[in-house]
Design a protein around this nucleic acid. Structure first.
Lengths: 359, 359
DNA sequence: CTGAAAGCGCTTACAG
DNA sequence: CTGAAAGCGCTTACAG
């Protein structure tokens, strides 16, 4: 008779893993009791509870999340999707969401898309496979297929500054238009007329323009229009690529073609590159050229000179996103979409243009 | 007779979710066939395969990762744990690991610990619950309990610059000691003798010193020792808190107490704060004080002046980590622990001290 | 508080 | 290529 080897013994890791049965046996309680302890139900006597906890510690038991979430048919998971972890704006949002969600008893999963539509879809699929309770879609890009996936899945989701909506999908807005308006107004009031706006579009030329960029540009134009100075000379340059590199290249190119006394960068990282471009050309900030950024990331206060920028409230934003997500998760249909305000933070990178200072 | 409502109809979302059975029924094939299509097995006729894919698309079906991973008893998941997503060094490592792992057919999960031991443990537990195939522990802090959890779990793991090991746990080293040695040598050769080393320890004073910081300090001291100049005047200052803020405070404090012509920052973000501190005090870099950073993050080339720093190869590091992880996953016991080299990148933040320039 | 049992949605031999 | 069946490790009523 052939002896078939016991698979329990020949197999490696997987079957060695200890499970809830092992804990129950060693602690001499039932499965339900261990499960109760694990899930902090209040129907376990403290003494029993302690015994179970001891066995768990002794065995180094870790519950299998796949088994428990499968059995439970819902999860306490929030998926966070951002465009770019290297941009402190997104890193700060991700951190705020992560910390706040944990306080509320959720675990989080973080993925970045690198501004790529394909990766955005893949990220959504991953989150849906994980059956997350909700998704914080903190991206600039905006793939229609990703939205479609979310919509048909019925999974609650909150976008950042986009115009998507569905019964379980909403948007948190930051009033970037007004933020930009105020920033430009600040420059105009200082006396600037020759202003350069530096944008940083997606690599993919075929992709639709980013909503949040459009908003900012509208704010920019509104300010110019309202101020209505006759001697205005405004240029807009749109450089693709990594934001800091784009800011640098934009300035290099602009300096060849026209004069300007102030630069508005579409975000702080672009402003970083703008700084370098100006300084490499021997221009001083703000004496020769004033610079305004956008987002008020932690970088601003460490630049030389410290960067005047527009603050978009990160903590409030995270709070609003989670609040909306909870509403959707609870099945509410009419969820208010908040609009957070943006405000200017004046530091040392802006001053009156030197032609005026000379007066 | 009371009529019990059909739970299928009263329950909301969970039971509405379509599953593999629904796909099988609509495509008129068996469960195994759908599963085969999903997992790209080659035993399905192209025609059948297409029919199944069509139904999947039509239904918007997303496989339940919990069910499949539970049934499979293993995952294609790599857990990435970093200390701080706001530090570009960690963000760049996370991105490199993520991209490379995906190319190799793995999904990744990213968590950050914010340099906190408790959060490091929690992160490990989360990863173990997910039954990840391997863990990339890219942290500066180093909690013994987290290591214990990993060790007893049997899960493959690779640390960054630590001295942990087990049959399935290893370390990738970057020769930070030599990197620091070269950086200090560079300053000494330029003629600097009054040198300030700015470190940035963990918030938690009770925590043990970070291995990678110790390595750097040893390299620092070795260089001084080998150069053996008689007129050496070296200070070391250790400031807790956020790295950039710490660098700034360290310089403010140091300027009150002693003179120095060069600063070595323990990392680029600390150097950013050092820049600000010096520039706020009206000192120019490198004319008055030279500054060297560490890590060669993307920031360096955009600072004013561009920062001389020590490059630690991010892509190679990610490659080595994944390679080791794969070896452990394949059950190899004797895995080589690579040592990657670090090299200095001289930019414009270092020059001879002005006392020498004046000669 | 306990125990036995059904079920979560997949995968994977196995016999056709 | 297909279909029926067992099993992954939990949770959750349910009857005691």
């Amino acid at each position: 008779m052939a002896v078939t080897p016991n698979p329990r013994l020949t197999k490696s890791k997987p079957s060695e893993r200890i499970k809830i049965q092992d804990v129950a046996r060693l602690a001499q309680v039932s499965l339900s009791t261990v499960s109760g302890v694990l899930n902090e139900k209040d129907n376990v006597r403290p003494e029993t509870r302690q015994r179970v906890l001891d066995v768990i510690a002794q065995l180094g038991y870790t519950p299998n999340l796949f088994a428990s979430n499968l059995a439970r048919r819902r999860t306490k998971l929030i998926g966070i999707i951002v465009s770019d972890l290297l941009n402190p704006f997104f890193a700060e949002i991700a951190r705020a969401l992560d910390m706040q969600a944990r306080e509320q008893g959720y675990e989080t999963f973080l993925t970045s898309t690198n501004f790529d539509s394909g990766q955005q879809c893949a990220a959504v699929r991953q989150m849906l496979s994980l059956r997350v309770a909700g998704i914080a879609m903190m991206t600039s890009e905006n793939d229609p297929e990703a939205f479609f996936l979310l919509k048909t899945s019925g999974t609650p989701a909150v976008y950042l500054d986009n115009n998507h909506s569905a019964p379980h999908i909403g948007t948190v807005r930051v009033d970037k238009r007004h933020g930009m308006f105020v920033a430009v107004e600040h420059l105009l009031q200082l006396g600037h007329r020759r202003i350069l706006l530096v944008k940083n579009s997606q690599q993919d030329a075929a992709a639709p323009p980013m909503f949040s960029h459009m908003e900012r540009q509208i704010g920019f134009e509104e300010a110019l229009h309202q101020f209505n100075a006759s001697d205005m000379d405004v240029h807009i340059i749109d450089e693709p690529g990594e934001p800091a590199a784009a800011g640098l290249r934009a300035v290099e190119r602009a300096l060849e073609h026209y004069r300007f006394t102030a630069v508005v960068a579409i975000n702080d990282l672009v402003a970083l590159g703008v700084f370098r471009g100006l300084q490499a050309a021997g221009l001083s900030i703000p004496q020769d050229v004033s610079v305004v950024g956008f987002d008020n990331t932690y970088l601003c206060r460490y630049l030389h000179p410290p960067l005047t920028t527009v603050a978009t409230p990160r903590e409030d934003l995270a709070r609003s996103v989670l609040q909306m997500l909870h509403s959707y998760i609870d099945g509410e249909e009419q969820v208010r979409e908040p609009m957070l305000s943006a405000s200017i933070v004046v530091r040392e990178s802006t001053s009156a243009p030197s032609s005026i200072q000379a007066l």
